[in-house]
């Protein structure tokens, strides 16, 4: 039996940027985070994510690791080197059991498939910490 439903985060209206080249992931997480009161922005790779960030500053970023053009590790390093974005919590997720970019300055690394309940808990924790 599962645990009880996690309390919604509706009052904060945080913005989460979801970066993934798999459409089903962005669609699913977008709907789930919206259900929990988030405002959601999505991007299909690192480069698109950088453009989105310039338009709408997210409070937290969830990014896939393996993506075309710019992968999640490169995106993370780029953002963490920029004073404007370096304090945005960055969750990196990957379907692979290991990632090669050991110096990636992410805040949290999660293995896919990520169970939404666990993801939401971590997102709320990182936002609170911030």
């Amino acid at each position: 039996m599962k645990k009880d439903v996690i309390t919604k985060a509706t009052d904060d209206a945080h913005i989460i940027l979801i970066v993934d080249d798999e459409t089903d992931i962005t669609i699913t997480y977008a709907m789930l985070f919206e259900y929990h009161g988030f405002r959601v922005s999505t991007a299909c790779d690192g480069q698109s994510a950088l453009q989105a960030i310039n338009l709408l500053t997210p409070h937290i970023i969830l990014s896939d690791y393996m993506m075309p053009l710019m992968n999640g590790a490169e995106l993370c390093r780029t953002l963490k080197q920029d004073p404007r974005w370096k304090n945005i919590p960055f969750i990196l997720s990957s379907a692979a059991f290991h990632i090669n970019d050991i110096d990636t300055p992410y805040d949290l690394l999660m293995q896919k498939p990520v169970v939404f309940g666990e993801l939401l808990t971590e997102v709320l924790r990182l936002l609170e910490k911030k």
């Binding site: 459409t23 089903d24 992931i25 699913t28 789930l32 498939p113 939404f116």
Partner: peptide, 15 residues
């Protein structure tokens, strides 16, 4: 197809 893919992803994410 997109709907089926998203539904599959959704139920996996929601266990």
């Amino acid at each position: 197809s997109e709907f089926m893919l998203s539904l599959n992803s959704l139920v996996a994410s929601m266990e």
